[in-house]
Design a protein around this nucleic acid. Structure first.
Length: 497
DNA sequence: TTTCCACCGGAAGATGTGGGAG
DNA sequence: CTCCCACATCTTCCGGTGGAAA
């Protein structure tokens, strides 16, 4: 209820780092400095609410209808029906930029698949793994193993109680045995204890501690325990390959030749069209048996999508006519990111709500644009590790002292003084270079390697977020707050370099 | 043309944490 | 308790380099 603004939202838009000029700070930043307390909620409650159902605008919501994705969904379904015939579906690779509906479509198809498999009693399971979170071979295998173990145990449990029912029935009427596959009461008892033993044997994989091959074996046995087709959905698969190579994929794709009862099929989802370049050719060919591309939405399609959801999300007449086209246009500029468009729409609605307006106007969308970006930056900076914060702080200090085209050496000098000041460990310059690169990847700074000829080669760093706000966020960290005037060693640092 | 700066960035390995198994 | 494993974070070492200056 109380998250009506500043929810960070799991938005991650590459290098969004353009102008902040028009940000109205009082409106946007740190709203814990709320206006008076008197009747705070009364006011908000009495305001004519704009939303009917905000949930459908959230990124976590999986719609039942995905406009403009019929073609891709049908392709996926065509490939995956094989599973319902008990055959192994081809492995699928799905490409597309963020917010093109890859994950939503894939999840939709897998839900349908599982639903249908229940209907026709064909054992078929889909497991979803997000490789951005689960980004090592060990963790992927462990997570899969645990899921299958859990499922197996549930099923064994059901089977046992089924058998117990039969046993009890048989015990009561001793001539019913011929209706079952068992020859005697004892046989049933034996089967029950067998199953119980199986269930006991399945040991959950710990987060860490085991050798990887043991995890693999556990996973393998858990999958092979019963006859079925298993689809493993690896979202953001490029992150996994980037971080820990293609061993995982290799192991998964060769599993089929050793499995006896079950079949696995891999469905990889990637943002990066070229990530297969780093793969072992064998993995590459097996993984990319089928490829589906999700092109970015254009402005018209985005408008459609927004309209669909807005009908549900907003009260009738809560949107002025130009709101949806504007959201669509903004998002179309961001490589057709639908998630972005929905975020924009939701945030615009929230802003209008906060303004006690009855309609969302164009201006709210423009404000939302800035707010989303600022919220993202604030959140990223706030959750930075201390060392990175120190590096960023050093860079900002230099910038504020009129040093432009800052280079690594300068940052490092300031950083060293800063560390002494607050009694933090001083990292090596090598490490600081890496931290700067990380800040670059997060879109907080912009670092380019330039050669200054005789005067060496270095990264030229500039800040690509609003400086004062960022500094404020940094200073709200308790460990950085007691940095007082940096002027004294600012001078010093310049002599050093 | 050659030199040489001031760093880049890969590789390997150390350290520390959190968790096994016997 | 000892030894093993995975992993994040950081250090050590070092070869590599674009281009202004000599």
């Amino acid at each position: 209820m109380s998250d009506e603004n500043t929810n960070p939202s799991d938005e991650r838009t590459g290098h969004g780092s353009r102008g902040f000029e028009g940000v109205d700070l009082d409106e946007v930043v740190l709203d814990d400095t709320a206006e008076g307390n008197q009747g705070l909620f009364d006011d908000l409650l009495s305001g004519e609410p704009i939303f009917e159902n905000k949930e459908v605008l959230r990124p976590s919501y999986t719609p039942h209808e995905l406009p403009h994705r019929k073609e891709q969904i049908n392709r996926m379904a065509t490939i995956l029906v094989a599973a319902l015939r008990g055959e192994t579906p081809s492995n699928i690779l799905i490409y597309g930029k963020t917010g093109t509906g890859k994950t939503a479509s894939a999840k939709f198809v897998s839900q349908e698949l599982e639903r249908t498999s229940l209907k026709y009693e064909v054992p078929c399971e889909v497991e979803y793994i997000n490789c951005e979170v689960t980004d090592t071979q060990y963790r992927v295998l462990a997570q899969l193993a645990n899921k299958f173990i859990e499922n197996n145990q549930i099923e064994i449990g059901e089977r046992i109680s089924e058998l117990q029912d039969i046993r009890d029935g048989v015990a009561a009427e001793s001539d019913q045995l011929e209706n079952t596959e068992f020859s005697s009461l004892n046989a049933i008892e034996d089967r029950i204890s067998e199953l119980e033993a199986d269930a006991d044997e399945m040991e959950a994989v710990p987060m860490t501690g085991w050798p990887t091959d043991r995890v693999y074996n556990t996973f393998f046995e858990a999958v092979d325990y019963q006859e079925r087709v298993v689809v493993i959905m690896l979202d953001e698969i490029d992150k996994l390959v980037e971080k820990s190579g293609d061993d995982t994929l290799y192991n998964l794709s060769r599993m089929n030749s050793e499995l006896e009862n079950s079949r696995v099929s891999i469905m990889g989802i990637s943002n990066d069209l070229k990530f297969t370049d780093f793969l072992d050719p064998r993995v590459k060919s097996s993984l990319g048996e089928e490829e589906i591309v999700f092109p970015p939405y254009d402005a018209n399609q985005l408008r459609d999508i927004l309209q669909h959801r807005a009908d549900v999300a907003f009260k009738a007449d809560a949107l002025s006519d130009d709101v949806i086209p504007l959201c669509a246009a903004f998002a179309a500029q961001e490589h057709g990111d639908a998630r972005r468009a929905l975020d924009l729409l939701r945030t615009a609605g929230e802003l209008a709500e906060r303004d006690q307006k009855e309609r969302v106007e164009e201006g709210h969308v423009r404000k939302a644009q800035d707010k989303i970006e600022l919220d993202r930056v604030v959140e990223v900076v706030r959750t930075l590790p201390t060392q990175s914060k120190l590096v960023l702080f050093s860079t900002i200090s230099l910038e504020k002292n009129g040093v432009h085209n800052i280079n690594t050496g300068e940052v490092y000098n300031v950083y060293k003084h800063l560390c002494e000041e607050i009694d933090a460990d001083i990292l090596t310059q090598r490490r600081v270079t890496d931290l700067i690169s990380e800040l670059d990847m997060l879109g907080i700074v912009n670092a380019v390697v330039v050669s200054k000829g005789r005067y060496g080669r270095t990264k030229e760093i500039s800040i690509s977020v609003p400086i004062d706000e960022t500094e404020a966020v940094l200073q709200s960290d308790s460990r950085l707050s007691d940095i007082d005037d940096i002027q004294p060693f600012m001078q010093q640092a310049r002599f050093d370099s």
